Simulated scan of single mutants.
Amino acid sequence: MNQMLKKASTTCAAFACAASLIFSGAAVVWADGEIDETVKNQIETYAEGLTDEIIGLSDDQIEQYMESDDAFTSSAMTAWDGTKDDLGELKETGDVEIEYSGDEYTAVIPVEFEKEDAEFTYVFDKNLTPTSLAVDIQYSFGTTMKNAALNTLMGIGTVFVILAMLIFLISLFKYIPGSGAQQVKKKKEEAAAPAPAPVPVAAAPVQEETDNSELIAVIAAAIAASEGTTTDGFVVRSIRKINRKKR
């Protein structure tokens, strides 16, 4: 345990001081785009060695370096810890590309890993002291399409879930008193209810009684004429139709 802590402390100190120790007195100010060949070789050697050192760190060592007071060490460990799980095991390190601009040197190292490739981008100040490290994953076309498909499916699924929730909430409006849904429901129930049966209209009374009185008067007059008397001597009380059989 003590040996591991000692090694961690040594490496942490190397991150902060190696550039100053290796490049002491070697920095030269050049015009943008121009780099002294000696300085270039020194930056390449240091960047490659630092990359191999970072990739070979264990999880415990990374956690310790992330708590370092040195800004470059903590930021470099944070950048590597956030990407290492997506890369896998180291396969090969490519050639270093260095650019000089604005009193800063930028060194980019392409690294091939088991799962995906990545680029380690270091920035050195004019005194050749490392100030930052960025680890950019270079996703393959297949991985990019896979991530795009997953994002699309997630977006569509989210839309359907939100629509289902809205439909459910709208369906609850019918239970709210005084809401428009309650009034629409009442109108539908009234429209679906059977229409009341019409009140039967009483038929006009048949003028049977009036017709019989006239017929009685005619019959009484005929009888009185055949008897040679008046209608005062008898009263016709009823008239009955006799059904005669046809011969």
Rank of each mutant, 00 (worst) to 15 (best):
M165K: 14
V235G: 08
L172R: 15
S140R: 14
Y139M: 11
T106V: 03
E37A: 15
D85K: 07
G82E: 09
K185R: 10
A192C: 02
N2I: 14
P200E: 08
A225R: 07
A197Q: 14
V201W: 06
M66P: 01
S140D: 07
L215C: 00
E104T: 11
M4Y: 10
P194H: 05
K40C: 13
M145I: 15
T73I: 00
T231M: 05
P205S: 06
V206D: 08
I35F: 06
A197Y: 11
V184W: 00
E112S: 15
T73H: 10
V111T: 09
A204S: 05
I162T: 03
T210S: 10
M77D: 07
P177C: 04
Q207K: 08
I176F: 10
E227Q: 12
T229E: 02
I239P: 06
D117F: 01
G56M: 08
T10L: 15
K6C: 10
I98T: 08
F160K: 13
G33M: 01
C17M: 13
K245S: 14
M66V: 03
F120C: 05
T131A: 06
T83G: 00
T78V: 07
F23S: 10
Q182L: 14
G142D: 11
D60H: 05
G56T: 11
E116R: 13
V159D: 03
D69H: 01
I156W: 01
V199L: 11
T152K: 11
S238F: 01
T93M: 13
Y100I: 09
G157Y: 02
Y100A: 04
E63M: 08
G228E: 08
A224F: 02
E214N: 13
A31S: 07
A217D: 14
M77R: 14
C17P: 00
K6F: 15
T11C: 01
E214K: 12
A191L: 15
Y100G: 00
F120Q: 02
D69M: 01
L166Q: 04
S132C: 02
F120V: 15
L5D: 12
S101M: 03
L57R: 11
V184P: 04
L169K: 11
D95I: 06
K84E: 08
G157D: 07
F72K: 02
E209N: 15
A18V: 06
E63V: 12
G178D: 04
L153T: 05
E190S: 10
T143F: 00
S20D: 14
Q138T: 02
E37C: 08
A27V: 07
F23R: 04
A14I: 14
K186W: 06
L90D: 00
V96F: 12
I242S: 11
P194M: 12
G94E: 01
D32C: 02
L163N: 02
A8Y: 05
M145C: 07
T129Y: 06
F113R: 07
V159H: 01
E104S: 05
T131V: 03
G49C: 14
K40I: 06
